[in-house]
Design a protein around this nucleic acid. Structure first.
Lengths: 208, 208
DNA sequence: AGTTGTGAACTTATTCACAGCC
DNA sequence: GGCTGTGAATAAGTTCACAACT
């Protein structure tokens, strides 16, 4: 299967597999079958095997997957085997929460630059990172930072995205409820939290 | 098309259409074609028409869709035409940001109950909502709150989910990196922020 | 016996293309 | 002329089922 195009959905699931494997490791489990992983993540065993097969043959028939080895492989595929630095733009409520969020470390991600346009925030040091003026975004070029996180209001999101692209950013995680127009070479993933929550009432039973 | 099963992907896009329509309304646009909406949201015109057709015929050939009328229809479909109250569990960094997040209003969503297990937070009033002890989750039953937001560490997420379900919650937005085991009647949507960010390096060009 | 890896079958989702309408 | 609504065609994604391996 190694020469096929990789489905987007497969890439979306890879971090989940990694999460499951880390959970196994914590519990001292050395080998895990696609069925056991399936119980943990609620993704079908066939799906797991198929997804992994796009990248190679990592398992042992009759045994399963070596948790440490497979985790390493997946990190390599996702390119998170070496640390990735990210720049955060917008130190409002959400931005501050992201800066303090402890979950990024498990995936080798680190927010190592922060920008805001509020003079009251610029210059402050939060989580060992100095808050800089958004006009200084271009300085990212010299810092080997390829990932950006946008946590500003929708009205400012596009101009921030433009500045990030100009500064050499190649991947953007966008929390603003707005479609960002960027060059094809830049990958954008948008999380619109309100929009996700807005989907839930649809599934509520009719009788309130 | 009215009698088909609705694809999940269609439901996922409905809030986007609503966002596009609100944007049009702000600009004073009365009617919008699927093509104009497409340019705004980057969803194909055919996709937009097909999605809407599952629920009825809302447009006028030669003209497009009346923005106000269609917005109202979509709100009805999503059941957000009347306000929906949500309970937030976990007032850490992320929980606090969510409580202050201004974006929910546009979708008729309101966080009207907050729970935490930190004695230092219980009793405080944030954004006009009094923080209660998580052990009081069962009181939700009397408050007609059907939506829950979980913003607690992964280790506590399942027990919080159990309590929410017991308290009559039927829809959960989960930010903990953990698969939640709940009865089929309860809809869970999980956002694992770190996992989403972890996908970006994959798309970076090989040469750093 | 137990599990992987994978082509084939199936299911789901998207796009095409055009009749019908304004 | 321009647009919607939709069946038909296409593409994408998932599951089946089993040969091959430990």
């Amino acid at each position: 299967m190694r020469y096929h195009k990789i489905p987007d959905e497969t890439v979306r699931r890879l971090p989940m597999y990694l999460r499951g494997l880390l959970l196994c490791r914590e519990q001292g489990v050395r080998d895990v079958s696609s069925r056991k992983l399936s119980e943990l993540l609620h993704i079908s065993p066939a799906q797991i095997r198929k997804d992994l097969s796009y990248f190679g043959a990592f398992g042992t028939p009759g045994v399963g997957y070596d948790t440490a080895k497979l985790a390493k492989q997946i990190r390599g595929i996702l390119k998170i085997d070496t640390p990735n630095k990210a720049a955060l733009v917008g130190l409002g409520n959400l931005g501050s929460a992201l800066l303090k969020y402890p979950g990024f470390g498990a995936y080798g991600l680190q927010i190592s630059a922060v920008f805001d346009n509020d003079p009251g925030k610029i210059g402050k040091i939060v989580k060992k990172v100095k808050v800089e003026d958004v006009s200084k975004l271009s300085t990212l070029k010299n810092k080997n930072i390829k990932l950006g996180i946008i946590a500003v209001p929708a009205s400012a999101a596009q101009s921030v995205a433009d500045a990030l692209v100009k500064a050499g950013i190649r991947g953007i995680l966008n929390f603003a409820p707005f479609y960002l127009d960027v060059p094809k070479k830049v990958k954008v993933i948008t999380i619109d939290i309100a929009m996700v929550l807005a989907r839930l009432p649809y599934y509520l039973p009719a009788s309130a």
